[in-house]
Amino acid sequence: MLSKPERGSFIQAKLAALYPDPQVPLDHKDPFTLLVAVLLSAQCTDERVNQVTPALFARADTPAAMAVLMEEEIRAVIRPCGLSPQKAKAIRRLSEILVEEHGGTVPADLDALERLPGVGHKTASVVMAQAFGEPAFPVDTHIHRLAQRWGLSSGRNVTQTERDLKRLFPRETWNDLHLQIIFYGREHCTARGCDGRGCEICRTCYPGRKHPKKTRKA
């Protein structure tokens, strides 16, 4: 069995070969449209979000324009994404706050982003990483699951998983690795398609594993 540093090096090299130039899979043109798209992706597929956002952004693609829309109008457009009442309320209110407190722009500040309605640590981290190029390691369900299967974290919670991954991998690799692990988790090491013994990374990291790897939910 490989040591944790050896597993980390192998995983990093393998993912870089598979996904040499990972791009965030949510269609957007600037920090604001990315912020809204990431917010909409909660408990929704990226594909569905990308089907919905063109109609939404045709109506409003800036905080100032979004802030003057009726909440009901936003809700009607985003309904296919699920949780539309909460998401519509959050999108309209955060747009108002961006206008009132940030000059109508999305702040490149993690704490300020986390204070916006509907924007938690993961969403704020994605925006910091993908819109502003700041190193971050947002942990979603795929990353949380794979970090446990690959022995990179105990997986007690997403906070612990994020901390463990940041300690293991170089800071300059975080933004790519965040996307690369997600892509691998969707394509090769899925929740049902691999139990910790099926995909190439699982087999390489734990060649002697005899039983399924039980993982804690995020």
Results as ranks from 00 to 15, higher is better:
residue 109 D to Q: 09
residue 109 D to H: 06
residue 111 D to G: 10
residue 113 L to D: 03
residue 113 L to V: 02
residue 113 L to R: 15
residue 114 E to D: 03
residue 114 E to A: 07
residue 114 E to N: 12
residue 115 R to Y: 14
residue 115 R to W: 10
residue 115 R to A: 07
residue 115 R to C: 05
residue 115 R to D: 08
residue 116 L to R: 15
residue 116 L to E: 07
residue 117 P to Q: 12
residue 117 P to R: 12
residue 118 G to F: 02
residue 119 V to R: 15
residue 119 V to G: 13
residue 120 G to P: 09
residue 120 G to A: 08
residue 120 G to V: 08
residue 122 K to W: 02
residue 124 A to I: 04
residue 124 A to F: 08
residue 125 S to H: 13
residue 126 V to T: 05
residue 126 V to S: 07
residue 127 V to I: 14
residue 128 M to N: 07
residue 128 M to S: 09
residue 128 M to F: 08
residue 128 M to I: 07
residue 129 A to P: 00
residue 129 A to S: 07
residue 130 Q to P: 04
residue 130 Q to L: 05
residue 131 A to I: 05
residue 132 F to C: 13
residue 133 G to T: 04
residue 133 G to H: 03
residue 134 E to H: 11
residue 135 P to H: 13
residue 135 P to D: 14
residue 136 A to F: 01
residue 137 F to R: 06
residue 137 F to E: 01
residue 137 F to D: 05
residue 138 P to I: 11
residue 138 P to T: 13
residue 138 P to F: 08
residue 139 V to Y: 03
residue 139 V to G: 02
residue 140 D to Q: 10
residue 141 T to W: 06
residue 142 H to S: 03
residue 142 H to T: 12
residue 143 I to T: 15
residue 147 A to T: 07
residue 148 Q to V: 04
residue 149 R to A: 03
residue 149 R to T: 06
residue 149 R to F: 02
residue 150 W to Y: 12
residue 150 W to H: 07
residue 150 W to E: 13
residue 153 S to W: 02
residue 153 S to N: 06
residue 155 G to A: 05
residue 155 G to N: 06
residue 156 R to L: 08
residue 156 R to W: 03
residue 156 R to T: 14
residue 157 N to H: 09
residue 158 V to D: 00
residue 158 V to C: 04
residue 158 V to F: 09
residue 159 T to K: 08
residue 159 T to R: 13
residue 159 T to E: 11
residue 159 T to C: 09
residue 160 Q to F: 04
residue 160 Q to P: 02
residue 162 E to C: 09
residue 162 E to V: 14
residue 162 E to T: 14
residue 162 E to W: 05
residue 163 R to H: 11
residue 163 R to Q: 10
residue 163 R to A: 15
residue 164 D to H: 01
residue 165 L to H: 04
residue 166 K to C: 10
residue 167 R to K: 11
residue 167 R to Q: 11
residue 168 L to H: 04
residue 169 F to Q: 08
residue 170 P to G: 13
residue 172 E to F: 00
residue 172 E to M: 05
residue 172 E to W: 00
residue 172 E to T: 08
residue 172 E to S: 08
residue 172 E to Y: 00
residue 173 T to F: 00
residue 174 W to V: 09
residue 174 W to M: 07
residue 174 W to K: 12
residue 174 W to Q: 08
residue 175 N to I: 10
residue 175 N to K: 08
residue 175 N to E: 03
residue 175 N to H: 05
residue 176 D to L: 04
residue 176 D to M: 14
residue 176 D to F: 03
residue 177 L to T: 01
residue 177 L to M: 09
residue 177 L to N: 02
